[in-house]
Design a binder for these strands. Structure first.
Length: 306
DNA sequence: CGTCAGGTAAAAA
DNA sequence: TTTTTACCTGAC
């Protein structure tokens, strides 16, 4: 596994973890307890418990979470065999060796992250997610330092949506002073979706209900969440719920698929998704991830830029 | 100062 | 059902 590539590949399950030397660190809840996960580029894994915190965690559970988040039980070798047998995809392993799915450590974080990524840049998206954590997330102290986790559904529900909302609630203080709201983290008009989505999970849908659904059903239901369209839905299902048959289709995947499979003809995003589901089956999510990074690294992306 | 970026929702064709 | 259009924001 290539940890660096996996961390920086812009998967919307969560922002990249904190980089310390050649390792990446972040807090993961295991059996309800915050645990600091530390993994280096050689995939050596270690963890810490909070200072002055009196509980123990099952080592087996911790290891299970680690394997789940980095999708270590997915057989990359077999996948590469599949790719090399396909004349359109045979170059993908060489350009993305060791790239894996970066699965959500927290489903709500993944959902808000995915909503925030829509029509956004990776740089701004990353900043916004880290700001959310610092402003409203619970802080935990470990021997290695302080970390913030992603805020809960309840917390996001209780935060102002934008500066206008804050302006009204705070006795009409200067609008410039209204910075204690979701929008102030740089998410723009998505702030409304974020708050509405949190409220949706508070009142209308249990976040874990999606897990027990079939993919097609989950795809429809998750789109009832404000701010979630087809692309974000597939990101949430792939990264958040590990539906590997999801094929998140955005404008880039559309261009790549059109180039590779439709003789460079312009095909709608919706058709591209249908094609991906049908053609790649349970490998759809991985093929999407690999196609995008192949295109990025090989220069195809530049070539396809309108 | 315009254009554009890893879409969605609402309106219109 | 399938196309337009407006939309925060910061980089270029």
């Amino acid at each position: 596994m290539n940890l660096e590539l996996t961390q920086k590949s812009g998967q919307t399950s969560q922002p990249p973890w904190k980089r310390v030397g050649n390792s990446y660190q972040d807090v993961v809840f295991v059996g309800g307890c915050p645990v600091l996960f530390k993994v280096d580029s050689e995939l050596n894994f270690d963890y810490e418990l909070p200072v002055d915190f009196d509980f123990s965690v099952s080592e087996k559970q911790v290891d299970c979470e680690f394997r789940r988040i980095f999708d270590l039980d997915f057989d990359l070798g077999k996948f590469y065999g599949y790719l090399r047998n396909d004349e359109k995809l045979c170059l993908l392993p060489d350009f993305c060796n060791g790239l894996r799915l970066f699965i959500a450590k927290n489903k709500f974080e993944c959902i808000i992250s995915s909503i925030s990524s829509a029509n956004n840049s990776i740089v701004r998206w990353t900043k916004s997610m880290d700001l959310f954590k610092e402003k409203w997330g619970e802080k935990y102290s470990f021997p290695s330092g302080d970390f913030f986790v992603f805020p809960t559904v309840d917390t996001i529900c209780s935060v102002y949506g934008d500066e206008l909302e804050e302006f009204e609630f705070k006795d009409n203080v200067l609008i410039e002073d209204c910075v204690d709201n979701l929008k102030s983290c740089g998410v723009g008009y998505r702030s409304k979706y974020i708050k509405q989505a949190a409220e949706f999970f508070n009142f209308q849908l249990d976040i874990d209900d999606i897990s027990s659904m079939r993919y097609e059903e989950a795809f429809e239901v998750i789109q009832e969440v404000p701010g979630v369209g087809p692309k974000v839905a597939d990101c949430i299902l792939l990264y958040g719920y590990n539906f590997k048959e999801a094929f998140p289709s955005d404008v880039w995947i559309k261009r790549i698929i059109s180039y590779l499979y439709f003789d460079k003809r312009d095909v709608s995003v919706s058709k591209v998704r249908d094609f991906g589901l049908d053609r790649f089956g349970d490998y759809a999510g991985y093929v999407q991830l690999y196609l995008f990074h192949y295109a990025r690294k090989s220069g195809l992306l530049e070539k396809l830029r309108k």
